[in-house]
């Protein structure tokens, strides 16, 4: 990351966006949403062998209100669709989604009446991880990619853009 700041004794001068991104990218708290076999790989990636906490995914949040990254690992049946959507809607901004495995990306081998063919049509997905299942390294790599993505974000500019759009719509 190209974090540029001028600092002296007791003060630091940098862009506010940089500071926000620095905070966000270093604490992407995951919400583990394991619905099938990929969930096992996710557990493995979270546990001490691979230890996702090294990259800031320190605290696994089992409540959608207090998490940043929804890690969807496993098959989503059509019966499960409203549940997933509702959980995503409950998450507070800013929020990101990682789709783990072929099932979450495209439906995988389950091209049937009961399986949702990819969660991309329900909620916006930031990172897709292929594989059936992907190895824990794959999940860690996706998290690093997500961190890159967060660092390249412009949160304040987006906020301003939203305000401008809202004002224009109001006119």
């Amino acid at each position: 990351m190209n974090f540029q700041a001028i600092q002296g004794e007791g003060w630091l001068l940098c862009k506010a966006e940089q500071l926000i991104n620095w905070g966000r990218s270093r604490s992407p708290w995951p919400f583990p949403y394991g619905t099938a076999c990929c969930g096992i790989e996710l557990m493995c990636a979270l546990a001490s062998g691979y230890d996702m906490a090294r990259f800031g995914a320190e605290r696994v949040a089992f409540t959608p209100r207090q998490c940043d990254v929804l890690i969807e690992a496993g098959t989503i049946t059509k019966k499960m669709v409203p549940v997933l959507k509702r959980i995503y809607d409950q998450m507070a901004e800013p929020k990101w989604v990682i789709a783990v495995g072929a099932c979450a990306c495209t439906g995988g081998v389950f091209r049937t009446y009961s399986t949702q063919q990819g969660i991309g049509s329900i909620i916006p997905v930031d990172i897709y991880i292929p594989g059936c299942p992907p190895r824990p390294e794959g999940i860690l790599y996706a998290l690093l990619k997500l961190i890159d993505k967060i660092e390249a974000d412009h949160p304040l500019y987006k906020k301003r853009q939203q305000v401008v759009e809202a004002l224009e719509a109001g006119k």
């Binding site: 059509k78 669709v81 409203p82 959507k85 509702r86 091209r111 049937t112 009446y113 009961s114």
Partner: peptide, 11 residues
């Protein structure tokens, strides 16, 4: 049919 008749479930 294996792939269903296009049933979807919405929120």
């Amino acid at each position: 049919p294996l792939e269903g008749k296009g049933e979807e479930r919405h929120l």
